[in-house]
Design a protein around this nucleic acid. Structure first.
Lengths: 224, 224
DNA sequence: CTTCTGTATTTTGTATACATTCTATAGTAA
DNA sequence: TTACTATAGAATGTATACAAAATACAGAAG
């Protein structure tokens, strides 16, 4: 474990939530590595809180799929095999297609403008070369689509699925060959939504996810 | 709150898990009603444990979508509006279609035999008239399909989604008009999988879920 | 009668103590 | 050497104590 863990104190949020967010970020950033044990006393000492909020935060991580616990043995950061990744991406594809289809049905002028904004900001972020920002702007583009789909549970699910592969995603955005492809895909999706061409946007999003799948698999292979 | 809550003690499982399962069942059965507060002390007294396992169980219920908590106010059983139900069923449709499509790809002779067994047992259960058993056998039929899809995360998700509408589902199975329809649909799905007709099974499952949606909506309207 | 305010009570939040289980290791016997 | 056992240490499981916040309610002021 790194010793970089630090609580982003917020007077009002219960400690369990603060701890939860802290650990979650640490896992997503890779500071806590897959398979690494999450020991309550150790974490409690490191974060300067008691075991109680740590335990509750672990319960929460568990159901997010970011931690796995064995009764009376303890918790560890969830590992993700290639098969797991495939499974997640299969689901993501189905749900992303659903989301963009719904978004297509519900699209308004305002939303479309918002989407265009997000598109521009994504392109701009690429010029900065800051991978984290690029990832963020990419997320925001898709977020607009998700919001337009008007299905809260779907949005939550998709955010959770995205989270589960964040580590690999950032890795794959470090390869700047993909930027033109991504921009092109985003543009096409935007155009498709503009013309309410449902069939087209569903296909586009499908291949968008498939592309990601290929990239992420390459990265996993490289890491081995 | 009813006073029927009782722990199904199991020497080995941590109390948090026992409490979690107990509360979950109570919610699904309707013993704990939507909007009802989940007060730690009260539950702890009723179940004869301390607040600690209760709190952890609530954290778990929360991320299953069965409870909602407001910091420093406490938790309550999640309410489900008609919109929520629509949202869930939209997702279920997409994922059920995905699952049956995958199952179609992966179908083997053994699995097919298993599915046939499940089909028969479902038909038999209908003759008993025991709604809970019918619901169970129906679940088991779909479970075979899910297993064949060979995507653990997908199975978990679908189980969770099913759980969220269990209450309404049992209600709608009390209407025995639906039995012939269900049997017919199951048979067709079985036949489709037998002949590896992917397009057909996906359509069938789609309309299967849509039928459920219509039924469940009727029930919600009746209850109001 | 309504609204505000202070207080008592209830409830959640957090820390800590104790119990139980697991794990690693050293030592013994085959 | 290998396998088994005993034991110490460490980790999790559970209960409880205390702190802080929210709530309910009574009484006062308008």
């Amino acid at each position: 474990m790194t010793d970089q863990l630090k609580l982003n104190m917020n007077a009002y949020l219960p400690l369990r939530d603060v701890v939860f967010h802290t650990l979650r970020e640490a896992i997503l950033k890779g500071e806590l590595k897959p398979g690494e044990r999450l020991m309550e006393l150790q974490l409690a000492a490191k974060l300067g809180v008691s075991r109680t909020p740590i335990r509750e935060a672990i319960r929460m991580l568990e159901l997010e799929g970011l931690a796995v616990t064995v009764p009376r043995k303890g918790a560890e950061v969830a590992k993700m095999t290639e098969k797991d990744m495939e499974d997640v991406l299969q689901i993501r594809r189905a749900l992303d297609e659903l989301a963009v289809g719904l978004a297509c049905d519900n699209m308004t002028e305002e939303r479309l403008a918002e989407l265009h904004e997000a598109l521009i900001r994504f392109e701009e972020s690429i010029e900065t070369g800051d991978v984290k920002q690029i990832a963020q702007k990419d997320i925001e583009f898709h977020e607009v689509i998700y919001q337009t789909a008007d299905n809260t549970k779907l949005v939550n699910l998709l955010n959770n699925l995205r989270e589960q592969m964040y580590r690999y995603r950032v890795e794959y955005l470090k390869n700047d060959d993909v930027y033109p492809v991504l921009i092109e895909e985003h543009k096409k999706i935007y155009e498709g939504l503009k013309h309410k061409d449902k069939k087209m946007v569903v296909e586009l999003v499908g291949s968008h996810v498939v592309n990601q799948e290929i990239m992420v698999k390459n990265i996993i292979h490289e890491q081995e």
